[in-house]
Amino acid sequence: MIDIIPKIPVGRFLVDIINFLRTNLAIVFAAIRSIIATAVETVNSILTTLPEFVIIAIVALIAWKTAKIKVAIFSVVSLLLIISMGLWRPTVETVSLVLVATLIATIIGIPLGILKARSKTFASIIEPILDVMQTLPSLSYLIPAVLFFRIGIVPGVVATVIFAMPPSIRLTSLGLEQVSKEMIEVGKSFGATSKQLLLKIEVPLALPSIMMGINQTIMLAFSMVVIAGFIGAGGLGEIIIAGLQRYNLVIAIEAGLSVVFLAIILDRITKRLGQIYDVKKS
């Protein structure tokens, strides 16, 4: 029975498409590559030029101002621990990667979220794509990234951007959809144009939800950045993977802990940003 179904060369077909894109859109990929590489390098060099203690002080100050003193203390202790484990450099690399990836993911994701809330057609197109993106195992993002950008930091960032983007889109759109009809009427009744409506009413009211989206994006970026260690994206991810491959549990655990510390600090700070905003409005 099975024999009568002809073999359709799905894989071959997709590879052909990829090859076509690679040869014909080489300039585009080169541009993306250089933008991402420059961004990561810039952030990285700023963070490495600054003395460790200055950075720790800044992080503690931000944590104290936005979240609570507890978070500030946690930040100081955990960052000092990272220094004592000798993992400061890879930590800074990872943070640079996460920051750049989050920035790109939100720059693309928030407008897409706005579009999704505005247009039913676009929502019906992007909804299944988001479903796929959120169910695909994170490792599978590495393959297209490698195909187009080879190995290193750039494909790491690209894979991270794609993997981390869905919450930014979804929560932006959710936040906008939850803006009450009355608020929209308020804007319209005073003669707001659709741009004014978006900027002065919808986005501010959706901001807690958008902030939550950014927070989720950062968290996903952290998990992906570790996996991107497989393709030589550097940072803590590469150390963890090297540690696992050589069965050097000590180094793997230390690097893993560092990732957890970073994730907790950034999570608390960004979560509080959203909540501060929420309290102000309720």
């Binding site: 009355e182 608020m183 009427e185 308020v186 319209k188 009744s189 005073f190 003669g191 707001a192 144009t193 002065k200 009413i201 501010p204 009211l205 901001l207 905003y277 102000k280 409005k281 309720s282």
Partner: peptide, 21 residues
């Protein structure tokens, strides 16, 4: 219509409709 709403009408809402931010 935008011009009319700006110049001619002021609206007051049942649940106030104030912008919380």
């Amino acid at each position: 219509l935008i011009e009319l709403r700006r110049k001619k009408f002021g609206m007051v809402f049942q649940r106030f409709g104030l912008l919380p931010h």
